[in-house]
Write a protein that binds this DNA or RNA. Structure first.
Lengths: 154, 154
DNA sequence: TAAGATTGTGGGTAGTTGTGGGTAATATCA
DNA sequence: TGATATTACCCACAACTACCCACAATCTTA
């Protein structure tokens, strides 16, 4: 069952094969609307993982980037680092995309890989690295959650 | 007789079968409005149980998550931990949903299972675990209820 | 109370999904 | 240009899931 178009939730464990391919969760593929042309866009995440957008979602980001002015140094840097590592990738008949070697390296991907739905994108993690990151996350100052409590009710 | 749309109250005892399915109380199914598409969303609860939302209720949460920015580390962590364990599940002709193995493990579900209405969601417990948790709850400092008294009239 | 409808539980099966590997087309480089 | 590496596309198969039917227990209603 798919919720909203182009949104992703849930956790899925897959394996990166010898050819650098990773399966995309069937549910995520089904969540894509047709104008995404079976294509995802991979790029560096802000944590040690790969971010994967639907084509449409990425086009939205491109639009935002265009609104930044190259007169500002910080804007130039931000646009450069965001656009630089982005790679569109169409999945094959079995539903796999090929991950560029530089991204495999960046996220230290090994055989065991975890894909996590982040609503408007997904993340690809080395399973072991994520466990480490999660432990650190627990050490985050809980007071920081107060800010969130004002925005979100669960 | 159903009270309000999309709200759940009461306690029901069911069994988890060998295929990981649990029946949803008929009353809860009837409480769903049509645009829920016979779908619930399961995820980790804050206690050792599974939380089950109606599709609509979950979509509200998704909306909140989308308002958070991935530039903030704490926001990323929160979105990840919230979206990660969520799984939409449409009930079959008999009214059962399939619980993902990871959640069965998280809540230590056994054959005997208790479903509890929590108004805007429900909880699925291992019957024995709930008894234990209940005993501990009795030991809560009753002074803590003072805080609640300011928010709630019963 | 009896007949019918609804509810909860078990299990079979066809279709889907994830993974490995082969081969032909394309790109790279000396 | 020709040898080599890389990529895109194809097939095969095991494991899993969604969907279907059956039936006993319970509830409803006349």
């Amino acid at each position: 069952m798919t919720l909203t178009k182009n949104t992703f939730i849930g956790e899925y464990s897959y394996s990166l094969d010898s050819k650098g391919r990773i399966n995309m969760p069937a549910k995520f593929r089904q969540a894509l609307s047709k104008d995404n042309k079976n294509t995802f866009v991979t790029t560096r995440g802000m944590d040690a993982c790969i971010w994967v957008y639907s084509l449409n979602q990425w086009l939205e980001i491109e639009k935002s980037l265009m609104s930044l002015s190259s007169l500002s140094k910080i804007h130039r840097t931000f646009v450069r680092n965001t656009a630089r590592y982005a790679t569109p990738s169409t999945y094959d008949k079995q539903g796999r995309i090929t991950i560029p070697p530089s991204l495999i390296d960046y996220a230290s991907l090994d055989k065991d890989v975890l894909i996590i739905g982040m609503v408007n994108k997904m993340e690809i993690w080395n399973t072991k690295n994520l466990e480490k990151a999660e432990k650190e996350a627990l050490e985050i100052d809980l007071a920081a959650y107060d800010e969130l409590a004002e925005k979100i009710t669960i």
